[in-house]
Amino acid sequence: MPASFWSQVIEFSHEITQRVGAQLLLEYGQVQATAKDDGSLVTRCDRWADQEIGDAIATTFPDHGLLTEEGTHQFPDRDWCWIIDPIDGTTNFTRGIPIWAISLGLLYKGTPVFGYVHLPPLNQTFHGFWNAPDHTNSAFLNNAPIQTRTDAPAPNQFFSFCARSTDILKQPFPCKVRMLGSAAYNVLTVAAGMTLGAIEATPKIWDIAAVWPIVQAAGGAWQALEPHPIFPLQVGQSYGNRPYPTLVVSQAQWLSEFLPLVQCVSSNL
C-alpha cells in the first residue's frame, strides 16, 4: 500500500478516537450499565461510540468491512476490515476508574496488520503495524517507539491477570500480579515494557484485534491457549460468542516457563 494510505489510516484513527473520547469523558463515571447475554456490561455510551466510529469508517473507507462489539459480528467478504471495541473496560468506565480504551484494529485478508488504542483518561495512545503491506513492523506509545522488557521472570516483575484467570494463583506464581480491568490495556502494558506478561481468559475478537499487531511489533510473543489459530478470520463466520484465551509474554523464551502455569485458564472454559 502507498504511504499515503497508512497516513490516512493513522490520521483517521487519531481524529475519530480523540473526538469520541472527548465526548465519552463527559459521561465517564455517570452512566449505568446493563448486562448482555454473555454477562458483559454495556451502556448507551458503548452503543453511541460504536455507531459513531462505524459511521465514520463507512464514510472514510467505503470499501472496507466492519465488525463491532455492539453491531455486526459476522466477518465480511472484504480484503480490509476494521474491528471496533468502542469502550474496552466498560465496568471501569461506569465506576469512574480511569483505565478504559477505544480500540480499533485493521485486518487485511482476515489478519490484523494495524492497531490503534486510545485511553482518554490517561492521555495514552498506542499504535502499531505488524506484517502490514508495504510497512515496517513498529509499535508506539504517544508516537514514541516502544519495546517489551528483556528481564527474566522475578518476584519484582509485574504480570497482568484478568478477573477470570485467578485460579492460576492456586499455585506459586513467579511475578507480582496486577488486574487492570481492560483486556487491551493488560496486553499493552507488555508492549510498553511495564509488565512481563498478561493472561486473558475470555477475550472476544474485538478485545484482541487491535493489540495483536502492537504487542508483536514491540517484541512480544502471543500464544493462543487453544489448539486452533486465531487468525485469519473466516468470511461469513460469526465471532460474537467465541472467546480466545490468550497468553502474552515480553519475550518468546519465557513461554515455556509461563505456559504450564496458565493452562488451567483454557481447561476451565
Rank of each mutant, 00 (worst) to 15 (best):
A224C: 05
I199A: 01
R164G: 12
P112T: 04
Q51G: 08
T136H: 11
V117H: 01
L141P: 13
D134Q: 13
I16F: 05
Y28C: 12
F126L: 08
A201D: 01
G240Q: 00
A201K: 07
W222N: 00
A144Q: 14
D50R: 09
C81G: 10
R242V: 14
D151Q: 15
T60F: 05
Q23E: 04
F129H: 14
R95K: 15
P145E: 04
N268G: 09
L104R: 02
A163W: 07
A163Y: 01
Q251K: 08
N92P: 11
F129N: 12
R47I: 03
A191R: 07
A163T: 10
G115C: 01
M1H: 15
G181K: 09
F12A: 03
V177P: 10
L66N: 06
K36D: 10
F231T: 11
N186M: 02
W212D: 04
L106E: 09
N186E: 00
L41N: 02
T94A: 07
R19H: 10
D50A: 06
K36E: 12
A22Y: 02
L247K: 09
L269Y: 14
L25A: 04
P213S: 08
Q18I: 09
Q74Y: 10
A139W: 00
S165E: 00
G110D: 05
G181R: 08
W48Y: 08
I10P: 09
G219E: 03
K204W: 05
M194P: 00
P98Y: 02
T166D: 10
S160Q: 07
V20L: 04
I230G: 03
V31R: 03
D79K: 14
K204I: 04
V117E: 00
T148E: 04
P62H: 06
V215T: 14
G197N: 12
Q171N: 03
G219L: 11
H135I: 15
Q253C: 12
L233F: 13
I168K: 09
R44Y: 14
P260W: 05
V265W: 02
A152Q: 03
G240D: 00
V187S: 01
G110E: 03
Y244M: 07
F93P: 10
V215D: 07
N241P: 03
G240C: 01
Q157W: 10
L66R: 04
A58W: 06
H127G: 12
T91K: 08
A191H: 11
Y28F: 14
A144T: 13
I57D: 11
D55T: 11
V177D: 08
P98F: 01
E52A: 07
P133K: 04
D85C: 00
V211T: 00
